Amino acid sequence: MNNKATQYTGNKQFAVIDTQREEPGAGEVRIKVAYCGVCGTDVHIYHGMMDKRVDIPVTIGHEMSGVIDAIGPDVSGYAVGDRVVVRPLDNRAEKPSDKGFSHIAAGLKFIGIDSPGAMQQYWNVPAFTLHKLPADIDMKLAALTEPLAVACHDVRLSGLTAGETAVVLGGGPIGMLVALVAREAGGKVIISEMNPTRIALAEEMGFNVVNPAKTDLVEYVSEKTDGGLADVVFEVAGVQPTVDVMTEVAGIRGRIVMVAIHGQPRPVNLFKFFWKELKLIGARVYEPEDYDKAIALVSAGDLQLGRLVTSVAPLSGVQSVFEQIDANPDGMKVLLDCQA
């Protein structure tokens, strides 16, 4: 039985190949992948920024939804036909020194980067990575579970409570998901974003949006909060200007959540941490409860998630998908239809 799979082959090139569908091994299931989203990390791989980490040629992808197609030995609790998503963390190298936090264990492997991913028709994964989906869930939107779980983790670690003001620095895909989850938690959300298309989308979805190139963000937030400023700040953009403003826009005892990945050290105004008793919270990927929350939010259908799907393309169009993402910085989330 054939399996059509994409492969990153280096130098900004993808191939689509026919391989043999593999039987799942012990503790594994085979998933018929429905949809796979393209993540910012996937784009970094396309740009060659992770060539030293990935095993070229490699099938990537980790934002997905699918249906169990076959079950290997020693798997219980799942049946062929179950709708599932994968929490793509292989924590089998966890040690006592990781203190039980397997999602950030020193030996953690990320499935879809360090091992084959979901941009293919059929995908074998360890059963311990699975989360069941409701039978009536929209499988396109279910493919947003993984990035939505990132946002759930970020908001949960922030300690945001109803009525607090949250400022989201960056209105890209993750920033919008953080804003949606923060609003669902009862937060008063303000988004800082400079891209006109993303500003328009956020405003259409009911958010207060500030373009910091045109409006002083700190003054705006101060006016909205009677001088109290933000209770929580989510730094999602990952650039120096947002690092500079995060300590300015946070109010007394504000919590700053570092969502973005900064590949190098950055200057930070540490005086503000002393002066306002601020907290800086690191947040990386997700834990099982964040996946459960994300699935519940997708299933409830209240977050307007469909508006974040920019386009859907077949596996055969993978090369043009990545080229178009480069050419269209306005886009939000592109999905690959893995069975088209």
Rank of each mutant, 00 (worst) to 15 (best):
D98P: 09
K99L: 15
G100Q: 13
G100K: 12
S102D: 14
H103Q: 15
I104G: 12
I104F: 13
I104Y: 12
I104R: 15
A105L: 15
L108S: 13
K109M: 10
F110A: 14
F110I: 15
I111G: 01
I111M: 13
G112M: 11
P116I: 04
G117P: 06
G117N: 06
A118V: 07
Q120H: 04
Q121L: 03
Q121G: 04
V125H: 01
V125A: 03
P126L: 01
P126C: 01
F128I: 07
F128M: 08
L130W: 00
L130Q: 00
L130A: 00
H131F: 15
L133W: 04
P134Y: 12
P134H: 12
P134R: 11
A135T: 14
D136M: 09
D136F: 09
D136L: 10
D138E: 06
M139P: 07
M139K: 11
L141V: 14
A143V: 14
A143W: 14
A143R: 14
L144M: 14
E146W: 08
E146P: 09
L148M: 10
V150E: 11
V150I: 15
A151M: 13
A151Q: 14
C152P: 15
D154R: 10
D154I: 08
D154Q: 14
R156C: 04
R156K: 13
R156P: 01
S158P: 12
G159P: 08
L160K: 14
L160Y: 13
L160S: 11
T161L: 09
G163A: 10
E164M: 15
A166L: 06
V167T: 11
V167K: 07
V167C: 08
V168Y: 05
G172L: 01
M176G: 02
V181A: 02
A182D: 06
E184S: 13
G187E: 03
G187S: 04
K188T: 14
V189D: 01
I191P: 05
I191Y: 02
S192I: 13
M194E: 09
M194G: 02
P196C: 05
I199E: 06
L201H: 05
E204Y: 04
E204K: 12
M205H: 03
F207Y: 09
F207R: 01
V209L: 00
V210C: 09
N211Q: 02
P212I: 10
K214W: 04
K214Y: 07
L217T: 03
V218H: 01
V218S: 02
V221E: 04
V221Y: 05
V221H: 05
E223G: 08
E223I: 00
K224E: 05
K224C: 00
T225H: 13
D226F: 10
L229Q: 00
D231Y: 02
V232K: 15
V232M: 07
V233W: 02
V233P: 03
V236H: 04
